[in-house]
Design a protein around this nucleic acid. Structure first.
Lengths: 225, 225, 225, 225
DNA sequence: AATGAATGAGCCTTCATTCAT
DNA sequence: GATGAATGAAGGCTCATTCAT
């Protein structure tokens, strides 16, 4: 199959791979076309020949990275769509944490950079993708919370759960708070254990919110508010 | 004291303020000395004259921003050090969320950029500061968890709690997942309510972890797991 | 004959046509091989394959354009070589004006560009062609001026007449002095009327020069200058 | 006076002079910043420092060239505004021809290039300047033509007169039709003589047009058209 | 002490040409 | 014979830094 690849496709692929690495490591502005082409082993004009511009290469390499990331870690965690909500949410949490923790995954750095230093280049496709993932998680959470919980509370639940998954995987990769103590300070070694931990506390939190909402609603129901 | 300020000190001050804004908005590499001096209304050579280099100005302006941020939002949330652990942790959570949510606070963007695009310039002072904050939080959490919980579990608790505080405040400021729905998707309007939410679920989670640890310990002498 | 045209000949023809348009519109340096090949619908390597270089294509396309231009507007204006000098000159003026005014005529832009931005590529063939046209006009003018007029005066006459024909057709095509007034400022709408005007004033001018020369000669034997 | 010139002004002046030469010789696109800075003896970044961009330098150097040109050759030719129309037009013709013929005058090449290869950079100021010159000439011509002549005829007169002045001065500078014969073919050596020639034939032409208009109008006047 | 001017390295991009099918 | 891919030189521009007052 690889033998049927044209020379052009090979160059594109090399560029995409090299760009993924360099952009993830350096960010859009700091990454130079020269560095990318050097890593890809192609001429410096190849980027503009194949992609038209540095910006286009950025867009394409982000799509590339994202597709690989999603393929490696399906967002549902392998749980069927008709499974119990606990299982579905658990699967999503585990999948998200693994996706974020995967060191070969460059997607997260694209996102992170778009947050801190937006290029505006990812635009619509970016929003679409994130939006789709969000919908699945929101649904599972709502199923667990029951109807008494307000929209805002449901949003808060999604926010705090996803934050637990994303933030710790992102921060300490590059930011060693202390070099000597990196192993026991914010640096999570046992990903599996952390994932389980997040599932536990998330479900506990959701139950607390649900309970609070239900005890709050009932007295109000009596006086027909 | 301010009235005795020399012209030189005034220039330094102006530069520090302007640099804080521009670095926070643009990041280290994208911010240009020309833009900073322009905003500060000083000569373009002033940065190198007063600070020696762009890098030095970056370091100084981050310290400046951080001090202001900490002053505006004391990390203990105004809770006495000898208060109950629940109250201490609650105070820290509320304080951290407000600190992160403060739109005038540039500290968060320095940190965020150091994560995604490390300059390595903040170095030791950065680690020291974060380390000190961490110690306080870790202590309150440990007090709540009790002695049965492992070190790793305690770390996980700190991680997930801080993540809930930091991540949602950082992400949606600049990244509107969907323009139409930005008001109800990841964009937290009611900071107070979210802070209370985080306190609730965090304590619920901690209790769950504590309980799990305690029921895990007992089985050694009990058959009914 | 066209039906037996090989694919190669077709490509050459397409390139020649496209090059004529693009070179006339953009000039030699600004025109790109990519644009020409794009317009011609051929491969980007075709220019170098068929013509050897961009310069060669330029030369060939200018010849092509010039031949078409001369064919469309025979320089003698259809007046027989043995007609009266007034008629011959009139025919040449009308023909030249129409040739210059023809919007499909790309020749004029090649010349114009060679004047303002000489490539030196047209070289000998260019000089030959212009030289031949010049000879015919010079002859008709000399016939009208008579023998008393000096060579310099005859040259001046040719110059001013040709200038009247060429300049106004070239300038306002692209240079609207004023957008609002473009219709009545230097923009000649009625080409026929202008041609007639030029014939009128040219002949009047020639008569004036002839008369001046003749009255100048006589005084040698006459006191009343 | 020159001693009071700042260093910056000196550099600007050098750049302006060098740019005038290079742009006039090469045109906007072909001229390189490196060549201009080389000629001016300044650093390659000086253009962007002092003028912001190549385009701005182009605009400024055209204004510079135009001002020098107008100063050296006042458009009215030194004839008072209340002199006879013949004298005013004659003065304008002589001035225009000298302006166009001045080899140190780079203005004409800017204009010529804007015609054949418009950059669109000269824009409004360009149109304004040309427009102002046009108004003066149009007025003198109209005074000579009398009221019977139509607007179109008056325009034609202006066009053919200005063409006689501009075209011959522009063309042969760079386009030697024949290298051996350049001295007697289209190459005008005696500018004074040519200027006088143009005045003669222009006035002759104007008289012819006026006469034609007057003889045309009278018979129509009898039947009250 | 403080500044306007100057600098040169480096970046992205364009493009005519050549190469390898 | 003809083409898609690749090349490298060169251009304009940016910018942190240094220089000369």
């Amino acid at each position: 199959m690889k033998s049927t690849q044209t020379r052009s496709q090979k160059t594109r692929e090399n560029l995409l791979a090299a760009a993924g690495e360099i952009f993830a490591e350096m960010g859009f502005r700091e990454a130079t076309i020269a560095a990318i082409c050097g890593k890809a082993g192609v001429n410096i004009a190849a980027v503009n020949y194949h992609f038209g511009s540095k910006e286009n290469l950025y867009r394409e390499s982000w799509k590339h990275a994202f597709q690989q990331s999603i393929q490696a870690h399906p967002p549902d965690g392998g749980i069927a769509a008709d499974a119990l909500p606990e299982e579905r949410l658990g699967g999503q949490i585990v999948a998200l944490i693994h996706r974020m923790a995967d060191k070969k995954n460059r997607e997260i750095w694209f996102i992170h950079r778009e947050i801190s230093n937006p290029t505006g280049l990812l635009g619509k496709s970016f929003r679409d993708i994130i939006g789709r993932l969000h919908a699945e998680t929101a649904k599972a959470i709502r199923d667990l919370l029951g109807p008494q919980v307000t929209e805002q509370e449901a949003l808060f639940c999604e926010v705090y759960i996803v934050s637990q998954c994303v933030n710790p995987m992102v921060v300490p990769h590059k930011l060693a708070v202390s070099r000597e103590k990196r192993d026991n300070l914010w640096h999570i070694v046992d990903i599996e254990a952390y994932a389980e931990h997040v599932v536990t506390v998330s479900l506990a939190g959701i139950r607390a919110i649900r309970k609070r909402a239900e005890t709050r609603k009932q007295p109000q129901g009596n006086i027909l508010t």
